[in-house]
Write a protein that binds this DNA or RNA. Structure first.
Lengths: 206, 206
DNA sequence: TGAATAACTAAAACGTGTTCTATATCTCGT
DNA sequence: ACGAGATATAGAACACGTTTTAGTTATTCA
């Protein structure tokens, strides 16, 4: 039977699989994700070619597909790993600002800056996320929920967000994604991104 | 020189090119868009294969590419044509409801129903729209602006929307797109779609 | 009208995501 | 330590978007 290397374990998000499979398998997976991020960062979505990823990660093409059943799964999983890092980092730091609105604007500005610093990577992840079909729903959902929770936690200053805050966080995630798509297609400049996000925060939180 | 059949005319959105090119060309273009919508409606994004579209439209593959430089351009243009129809139709009818919020909910519900009626078509257009890269920016922007204006007009009861309403319309467009993506990947059910939209309207308009 | 130019057609060819095949290597239970 | 089953490898093969080539049909305009 053709199973994945993590077969038999509960199907956790792939960047959490650090303790599943043999050491060699964990290393392979990390090499694959590293290669993916490297290529994406260098040349965007189109530069992440499955053959190239396999080469850089020093695995056979078939093995790559055993670990990640499609380019979309691969990129979205990589995105998940990045998001997870950003999320835990954010959890550890104290977000400046006295009101939910201020904190939100701070985090949004920071994230926007981060994305501008690596436009190719941003393009690759955004397009993968948006192009995903139902087979990658699990991976996409993981990232989506993580984003919602990050924004919600920002507003509540890392306490437990209430229902209202979660709803607002979801709307902000949506606007964020949409603006991201516009930015990737160059229909929106960096300041457009900031503008629209600030406007939305003001509509929702003031 | 390899020009497009509409070369020489100002670059209007393709569904507005009814008065450019020869009659034969106008008919070819319509046949192509019709074939696209037919295939999309039947089998979604994957069923819209360039060779198949060309066959159904009774043009050579090379001709198809002369009219639409990529699958994305093709699908987004088709989406534009549909949106344009819906928009003008909406403009002619009186939207029920006394408050912006009520009218908005009415239109959103109606649009949601329409999309559910043809899930394959929705999937095809959504994925094309979201996957578009910078080369299709014009087409995507046309659709995006049309969507914003439709929502804004809904709130203002077909009068001229003010700045505030346009900002709200944009947010709703963003949420709409995002929810659409979630629906396409089956991460959100039909009632999830309605729920999230209603919640957003309430956050923004009440 | 006739020659130049543009548009169209048919079909081959190319690039990249994905799948398949045959073989080799690893891992684990006995 | 051994044999069975799972994993990994190299590479061919396939599918579909896209480009290219060669030849045919329209269109234009002098």
């Amino acid at each position: 039977m053709a199973t994945s290397p993590s077969a038999g374990s509960p199907d956790l998000p792939a960047w959490q699989l650090g303790d599943h499979g043999s050491a060699a398998q964990r290393e392979r997976r990390q090499r694959i994700l590293d290669a993916t991020l490297g290529l994406a960062s260098k040349g965007g979505y189109d530069a992440v070619q499955m053959r190239t990823v396999a080469e850089h990660a020093d695995v056979a093409l078939g093995t790559l597909y055993r670990y990640f059943p499609s380019k979309t799964h691969l990129l979205v999983t990589a995105l998940g790993r990045e998001f997870h890092q950003a999320h835990t980092k954010l959890r550890r730091t104290k977000i400046p600002g006295n009101t939910p609105s201020q904190r939100m604007l701070h985090v949004l500005a920071k994230t926007t800056r981060r994305m501008q610093r690596d436009p190719h990577l941003t393009e690759a992840m955004t397009r993968a996320f948006m192009f995903a079909d139902a087979t990658a729903a699990t991976e996409v959902d993981t990232v989506s929920k993580l984003m919602d929770r990050t924004f919600a936690a920002t507003m509540s200053a890392n306490g437990e967000p209430d229902e209202q805050q979660l709803a607002i966080a979801r709307v902000l995630s949506d606007v964020w994604l949409s603006v991201l798509v516009a930015w990737v297609t160059r229909r929106a400049s960096a300041s457009d991104v900031t503008d629209r996000l600030e406007r939305t925060v003001r509509l929702l939180l003031d």
